[in-house]
Nucleic acid binder design. Sequence first.
DNA 1: GCTACTATATGAGCGTGCTCACAAAAGGTC
DNA 2: GACCTTTTGTGAGCACGCTCATATAGTAGC
Lengths: 211, 211
Amino acid sequence: MRITREARQATRRGILDAARRLFAEQGFEPTTTRDLARTAGIAAGTLFNYFPTKEAIVTALASEALARGRSDFEGRRREQASLEEDLFAHVAAGLRRLRPLRKFLQPVLEAAFSPASAGADDAGAALRSEHLECVGRVLAAHGMDASSPLALQLYWTLYTGVLGFWVADRSPKQEDTLALLDQSIAMFAAWLRGSSSAVAGNGDHNTHPNP
Amino acid sequence: MRITREARQATRRGILDAARRLFAEQGFEPTTTRDLARTAGIAAGTLFNYFPTKEAIVTALASEALARGRSDFEGRRREQASLEEDLFAHVAAGLRRLRPLRKFLQPVLEAAFSPASAGADDAGAALRSEHLECVGRVLAAHGMDASSPLALQLYWTLYTGVLGFWVADRSPKQEDTLALLDQSIAMFAAWLRGSSSAVAGNGDHNTHPNP
DNA sequence: GCTACTATATGAGCGTGCTCACAAAAGGTC
DNA sequence: GACCTTTTGTGAGCACGCTCATATAGTAGC
């Protein structure tokens, strides 16, 4: 049974749309692959002709969400100095080495998935923007200028990297995430103060943070 | 069917011993709960009268391994100054908040489990000692005196905390672990240099580490 | 249009961690 | 010892993610 490239793409999209809806409504684990197949209008086995594992589906969705998130972020850091870009690349590369990519992608997905953003697409953008502001507040609490380009670089690094740790825990608690974010930013801030304070330009806090 | 407390304890130990052996021989996931039950000489369902989940078995084993590891460590940091103890408690508490305990325990277990330590008990001690030295080398590479009490505090924090992240990834690669360890130690070192350099007493490196 | 041939769809079925209804054994009371 | 209560053991069975043999729909060559 052969099929046109368009039909195959449509089926794939159908699976992803079903996954997006069901994961948002009832979460990742409670949603069975049979649920997904039934919602997408295909047989249980067919699903695995399109994605090798259930997790691959979430990864694919995460890819899309990450692409949107990244473009949001890129829009905010367009006028970076090259030294700062080096630093960003440096930190990002370090984090990137630490875990398989999917670990970094899923949290972005979780945000994109949350019931608040399930319906309209603009709600997802609002959610990501809210994240930006939340991280900004934490940065400020640690004596870093939350509006500086550097802070925004840190935001993206932390958003993808730190929340990746969160996802590793399959029953995430929002409080833990924030505590982890807080702690990590404290360490990053100290690191920046020590190694490139001239760049940070806001190292007027000498007390070490109290997480 | 009532049973003496001793018999119950014996069954429990039997399960743990079976788990210790099978996990060491063939790994956590490949070992089925039916394997464990058969090896322990009980029915498949009985296992779950002793441990609520398969993961609870690994956690129980980890508890034992952690207790041994901690006593090794405590032996090495008996003569700490109180300021350093505060710092240790501070960092440890921060990390402890980040994840459920089992995430911190399992890596210690993994070390205790590794085929090298499966047979003799003294081999396990040798392995833990080897870990201490490995971390010491990494610390030294980042310009910290690996023999200082502070370094030992960092060791324990990192050993339990950082490797916990490693375990979160179910198919661990040793290289990733070391890279993560490396990166984290770089950040900790900078943090210490910035916040309590008088204590560290070895902050003669100003170049920031290259992960 | 007919005949290979291939790519895809299908659902029965596998092994997993875990549950549950029931059986069996031990202790307490008389 | 007989009876009841309570705790533990047992294995059939569940739903899960995933596989595989088979059926089927589409294309290519004639």
